[in-house]
Design a protein around this nucleic acid. Sequence first.
DNA 1: ATTGTACCTTCCACTCTTGACAGGTCAATC
DNA 2: GATTGACCTGTCAAGAGTGGAAGGTACAAT
Lengths: 176, 176
Amino acid sequence: MVRMSLRHAVLGLLADRTASGYDLMKLFDTSLANVWPATQSQVYGELGKLAGSGLIEVSAEGPRGRKDYAITKRGLDELRSWLIDTEPDRTRRSETLLRVFFLGVLTPVESVTYLSVEAARAAGEHAELERLDAQVDWGDDHLSVYGRLALEYGLRLTAMQEEWASWARDQVGELT
Amino acid sequence: MVRMSLRHAVLGLLADRTASGYDLMKLFDTSLANVWPATQSQVYGELGKLAGSGLIEVSAEGPRGRKDYAITKRGLDELRSWLIDTEPDRTRRSETLLRVFFLGVLTPVESVTYLSVEAARAAGEHAELERLDAQVDWGDDHLSVYGRLALEYGLRLTAMQEEWASWARDQVGELT
DNA sequence: ATTGTACCTTCCACTCTTGACAGGTCAATC
DNA sequence: GATTGACCTGTCAAGAGTGGAAGGTACAAT
């Protein structure tokens, strides 16, 4: 039990409102898609474990075997304690950057192509996020207020990535 | 065998020069620390598998059981093919951002503190990278040329993170 | 001569993540 | 009445990553 952010992601979502595993999956695939992706197996598994340890509980049962979960007092304590008392794991892996390290085995022309594609990809993602920003109806609930901060991070990140990739492309271009 | 970037990280390092597992670990702990961290167990395990499949080979044996590995023709082909023909996995997880999503369970003051710490952390990392940049003797080999591009990415990323965290802190501050 | 330190490899137990599979129910439409 | 599609929960196998333990060798300095 070293880290387990997934556990806290589920707790965090349930802190906003009760939800079933199905509901949570939709949130993971939309709001949290670019922050903490998770699969069904993980979510349902985690719900079972969390319920077993009393951090959440079944608050209602609906049709089709639907189970609504609600966070408990202990769960909320655990979530707050995670936010305040523990340091985030900042281990980052970037396959894109890993490839940059090894661009030397390609020809300069091939490297320039790689970085151009990367710049275009970042630009595309940036545009996509801007579209999302304009489209989303930002409410006043927790997830909206702070979710917007997260979206802004995405906007700034993709903008930075595009600038960097363009710059890097030019740097490599000068080698030819 | 879906992704396995670690395999290609090892191949990429060996494309620059021959190395033992011990040598590779030093590279993983320095050059690649912020790009693709790996543990001993992973590296030695991967070396065994790569040698077994003929992508690398033992080029020399030294004292203390040291084995120097060199990339083979097939290994280089595999590396090039990975760089050119396959799309990087861009799945990103950010525990820091995940926490931002759930800042709503804290008081605004606690949230401001969290974001302030985050800004300071980014600033500190940025300064550290600048120090590294000035200190490193950038040579002409592959890892240096392209490693420098990666470092520049880190500089821009940490600068962006500091600006974002400061901005977000002010945003939340306005709620009080 | 001992001792400390750097060197060097290998194995194991555990958690996290992925992807696929399996199964069942309700509501509306044709 | 049958089909379709959205709803909803669960399990399993395998890969990837973590952390640590174990064990041994060469070398230099005291």
